[in-house]
Design a protein around this nucleic acid. Structure first.
Lengths: 191, 191
DNA sequence: TGAATTTGTCAACACGCGTTGGCATTTTCT
DNA sequence: AGAAAATGCCAACGCGTGTTGACAAATTCA
């Protein structure tokens, strides 16, 4: 009776509370640094529920790190604006919802956790590489790799390592300078 | 009597065995993924010795992640060759001694361990930033930050994440392309 | 209302961790 | 050789972890 089509059942709401808390904590402390008890406390329920709803910590992490980067269609942009557009897009996504997007989550855990590293390689292979492939010629994988080098480096130094001068850099300067580097990688592969 | 000046006492040799094993394992599995028992096994001694010789896991990590990048004097190079020289230098250092140099060690652990992150920021502040400062003008910190973005991104994707297309990139292409990006960051700050 | 199902709590488990102190062994020195 | 010091192993501790099963409270349905 109280269930409108948009209303969710009780269990769905706590399931979402767990997932949200897990995303936040995994993004902040990494996989190893986050305990099931921490997640349960943040979601205001018992640790046992985390296991019952998701089957285990590993499975929960897999769900938490499974998101869409929502990359724009790069072919719809002027060819020489792709670099800046990419940087702008990622900065927006990362700073948008408190850093609980999949990429920082996986990025923080990838260094010490194989599951997270695999997840990150998968995100790269299924989302970043194809988007680049439509711009660059036969050399697309190498170009995508070089782009990843710069994009992940920016994410790592700014959001994970929090290197002071990188944190201090204003958004528009990052867009201009890092964008130029990425543009060069893409242009370098065009005949 | 058996102690020539270059000979070390017994304890010094096992102390070095522990440190070497620790460097290797920390570089491979990160701080959290490496146990004192693992290190002891790799050094073929008892876990208790690790604590007795170094005081604890934290202190051992601090010693293991404390190395010199041996950055060359950048002012001695032609101004337009600095980018390539930097990339070449880092690739050599990283691939030289099996990746047991300080930067990959700290890099792998920095994501989930505060001690490692602090160590990495310190390496940046005391070694990378000053080297750049002599080239770039008053804007040096920002330039050093941008350079770190690209260098750490390369290290992360190639040696930690092992992203296939980045691993596959031949050394000289990395030197040329990534070097050009870094050169652009440095040149951007010169009047 | 009363039975059945869902949702949640509690206590405890087995395990691996860093770390410690006691005791055996080896090396060193006189 | 014999005493003294260094070097090493062993067993155990306290702790936090992921996970489990039994039981209570709330919700749902007839």
């Amino acid at each position: 009776m109280t269930d409108s089509p948009t209303k969710k059942t009780k269990s769905d709401r706590t399931r979402e509370a767990i997932l949200e808390a897990a995303r936040l904590l995994f993004a902040q402390k990494g996989y190893d640094g986050t305990t099931v008890r921490d997640i349960a406390a943040a979601a205001a329920i018992d640790p046992a529920m985390v296991i019952r709803y998701f089957g285990g910590k590993d499975a929960l992490f897999a769900r938490a790190a499974d998101l869409d980067l929502r990359l724009p269609d790069l072919t719809a942009l002027p060819r020489n604006a792709v670099g800046e557009a990419l940087v702008r897009h990622f900065l927006t996504v990362w700073e948008g919802d408190g850093g609980t997007t999949a990429l920082p989550i996986a990025l923080r855990s990838a260094a010490s956790n194989d599951l997270a590293a695999a997840r990150l390689r998968e995100i790269f292979a299924t989302q970043v590489a194809p988007a680049i492939a439509r711009l660059a010629g036969p050399d697309a994988p190498a170009v995508a790799g070089l782009v990843a080098t710069q994009i992940l480096g920016l994410a790592f130094t700014r959001y994970v390592l929090k290197l002071p001068p990188v944190v201090a850099l204003p958004r528009e300067r990052l867009v201009a300078e890092v964008g130029r580097s990425i543009q060069a990688y893409i242009d370098g592969a065009r005949p």
